[in-house]
């Protein structure tokens, strides 16, 4: 018995030392086989338990199991130590060499901006809506209080597919489509592609992304309109960004407003980005014209609301200081890769 216990303890100590000395997983595996494998010394000793007197067997067995469990535990510990500090930790490795890379993908800057805008308006209860890109002239113009024989229809040069079918010139037709389907309260944002018959230059593209917004309910006033837009501006451009509302004209809003924000570069001092004015135009907006409500069968005495629209590419250009809108549509990987971390 004594012999058994002392050889067991000796085995425990030498095993513990061997485990601690193992410098690599392969070495540790060799130690495991040596001590705990099928032909290992501990296994041999355990077989010896059967040869001990009957009354001594439980104690010897328990002790042998304790040693086995301890060694197993030490093996585990050492294994995870070795895993945590793998081979690279070995002295002599030049850690200034570059790591193994993977390609990193990126969202398009317009997607980044559109998602952020939609998320901010989500805080104000707006959900996303969508509509077709080819539209009837009814949805694109007439329902939005823009008669085709009025000069206001000239403000946007339009692509025609047929006499009464156009590529939408704005996301505003979705206003009508949503209101035809749902009753107030309506609170929607509509990101989407719109078309203008402008050739590509530094600030124009024939197809580009826009975001529309529409809120309709009882008692929505000009004051809330201003508050909602100012909230968006502060959340998107920063708390200290000022918002300016000035008169404008859109056939489907009245009163109409153009919304400017204090220049992001000079903070209102005047610089080349804002042409010295201190302000940068970001959206057209206003209270929904009652004629638009009449066209979808909403009671324009009971319901009021506001709508807005902004160019996503333009906002992306402001935010990321992109000087030429064509960069957004050329798909040059050296451009798109810059938004990996955005």
């Amino acid at each position: 018995m004594e012999v058994f216990l002392s050889s067991l303890r000796e085995l425990e100590e030498s095993g513990a030392a061997a485990i601690a000395a193992a410098a690599a997983p392969e070495e540790l595996e060799r130690v495991r086989v040596e001590y705990l494998g099928r032909k290992a010394r501990l296994t041999q000793l355990l077989r010896g338990v059967r040869e001990l007197p009957e009354e001594q067997r439980p104690e010897a067995g328990a002790e042998a199991n304790r040693v086995k469990n301890r060694l197993l535990e030490l093996l585990d510990q050492r294994a995870s130590q070795l895993a945590a500090a793998p081979a690279a930790a070995a002295p002599g490795t030049d850690l200034t060499l570059p790591g193994r890379g993977r390609w990193r993908g990126a969202r398009h800057p317009c997607t980044l901006v559109a998602d952020e805008i939609c998320d901010i308006f989500k805080e104000l209860g707006f959900v996303r809506a969508r509509g077709p890109e080819a539209e009837t002239t009814w949805y694109n113009f007439t329902a939005l209080n823009t008669p085709l024989d009025h000069p206001a229809a000239d403000e946007q040069d339009t692509f025609y597919l047929a006499e009464d079918i156009v590529l939408r010139t704005h996301t505003s037709p979705v206003q009508t489509r949503v209101m035809e389907k749902w009753k107030p309260p309506v609170r929607i944002v509509v990101p989407g592609v719109v078309y203008r018959r402008d050739p590509f230059d530094a600030s124009h593209a024939p197809a580009f992304e826009q975001i529309e917004g529409l809120a309709v309910d009882e008692g929505i006033s000009f004051v809330e309109f201003k508050a909602s837009i100012s909230y968006f501006v502060r959340r998107f451009f920063g708390e200290d960004t000022a918002t300016r509302f000035r008169p404008s004209f859109f056939p489907f809003t009245e009163p109409s407003a153009e919304v400017d924000v204090s220049c992001l570069l000079c903070h209102g001092e005047g610089c080349s980005a804002c042409k010295g004015t201190g302000w940068i135009e970001i959206m057209g907006a206003g209270m929904v014209d009652p004629a638009v409500f009449d066209n979808v069968g909403y009671d324009s005495e009971r319901y009021t609301g506001f709508a807005f629209g902004m160019g996503v590419g333009r906002i992306a250009m402001l935010r990321y200081r992109i000087p030429d809108i064509r960069l957004l549509y050329e798909s040059d990987v050296r451009f798109l890769e810059q938004f990996e971390r955005a």
Binding site: L124, G125, F126, V127, A129, V178, K181, W182, K183, P185, V186, R187, I188, A215, D217, G219, F222, V223, E224, K226, A227, S228, S230, Y231, T243, R244, F245, R246, P247, P255, A257
Partner: peptide, 17 residues
């Protein structure tokens, strides 16, 4: 336009899906 306050009011959630 600049003389109107911008005060946020409570709003009802929309039923549009």
């Amino acid at each position: 336009y600049d003389r109107f306050p911008d005060e946020m009011k409570t709003f009802r959630p929309t039923i549009v899906r």
